[in-house]
Computed example of a mutant assay.
Amino acid sequence: MVSARYALPLGEMRLLFTVMSKVQPNDTKMTVYRIPVAEFADFLGVAKGSAYEEMKKITHSIVTRYVEIKSPGRLVQTTWMAQAEYVDGTGMVDVQLSEAMIPFLLNLKSNFTQYKLTMLLSFKSQYTLRLYMLLKQKRDHNPYAKTYDFELSELRKVLGVSIEAIPRQDKFDKPQAAMELYSEYPDFKRRVLETAKKELSAKADISFEYDEIRHGRRVASISFRVFPIQRPELFLQQPLTPAQTTLPGLDSDLDLVATLLSFVPEAHRAKKAVRATIEAAEQQQGFDYVKRNILYSNAHASKNYAGYLSGALAIDYGHDWEIEQQQAAKTAAPAAPPAVTLADLNNLINEIKALQQQSKAQGSAELWQQAELLKAEFAQKREMYDAANADKEDEAEA
């Protein structure tokens, strides 16, 4: 199952592992796994008040998700879950797995302690989780290998970045369109490999270095060197609580939510629904993901900004738009650029984040003050950027 081809967003993967932790050897397709929605909200990173609706979205999606599992002489095509049932007033969701999935999940569970399952649930990137499982499997099966090599095209499929089309078989089926996420290798390297490497180094019992194997100028394969990390907390006698899944001594948000809110039009910044949506999405998908969808919503939302932003964050409307913006910037004539560019603002954001993280890690008030000064500079440049672009919009309307 580790090598199966599937694409699950992080929230759905967390739900799957939560259910997996409850699977028992004698379970059947009729076994019901009861999950308290309020408790799962901690792993989703959403306010408990909105957890019920968020959970409904996740279960609605995962019961239609297709997975293909290959083994010698055998191919299983199935869905993850058979159904999810909500009973009013209980605060619970009752989940039933597809019968074909139970033996795979039971076998997978036997390789992870409850504490390591908590570690998996703490990952903020779905690619961190997938790559961890893949490298862990390879290392456990062949611990003396110096490297584990994957063709890039196959690695993309296994990680759910390259998604094959699945046609509709009947009127009840949900077809799946072919998709290529992060089709440019530099984007794949930054958003998948480097993100996973950083997160595993901070939280997991293994991490990795990697080499790019090229055919000419093209990266054809990735060669991973996997090494263990001793983490005593993974062998505690009591399961970890959700509050213990972040690094000790570091705040979980590092003021990122406040920074993201600065991108939101002023008329909507104080809305609780907007803030809650941004907080949840930042914890699940990361800063850059949320930022591009805020900017996309700013450019496209005409009515009900909060609802439009929620939809953009759920489906990643801003992904293709961001690529188009980048390509347009490359081909645009360099004459008469704005005094402040979006790249300038992005660079400032990255500097602020880096200083905040260093300040937290080193306990340095001086570094934090530098970050505060940059935040003031960012606010000024943001006003200049907004004013310049407002002038352009007025000219276009005229």
Rank of each mutant, 00 (worst) to 15 (best):
F17R: 04
M20Q: 07
S21H: 01
N26T: 03
T28K: 05
T31C: 04
L44G: 08
T59F: 02
E68I: 13
I69T: 10
I69F: 01
I69N: 10
K70I: 12
P72I: 06
V76K: 11
A84R: 03
E85S: 11
A100Q: 05
L105S: 05
N111W: 05
T113R: 05
T128Q: 14
L131W: 01
M133Q: 15
K138M: 12
N142T: 15
Y144A: 09
A145Q: 11
D149H: 06
S153M: 09
S153Y: 02
R156C: 04
L159Y: 00
V161A: 09
I163N: 12
E164W: 05
I166A: 02
D170M: 00
D173Y: 00
Q176P: 03
A178F: 07
Y182E: 13
R191K: 14
E194H: 03
E199P: 03
S207Y: 02
D211R: 12
E212Y: 08
I213A: 08
G216F: 09
R218G: 10
V219F: 08
S221D: 14
S223E: 05
F227C: 08
P228V: 04
L236V: 05
T241N: 01
T246A: 15
L250H: 07
A258I: 07
L260K: 11
K271D: 15
A276N: 15
T277N: 13
G286A: 08
R292L: 14
A299M: 13
S302C: 10
K303M: 08
L309P: 03
W321H: 13
Q325T: 05
A328L: 14
T331V: 09
A336S: 13
A339R: 15
L342V: 04
K353M: 09
A365N: 15
A371R: 01
Q380P: 06
Q380R: 13
K381I: 06
K392N: 12
D394G: 07
E395A: 11
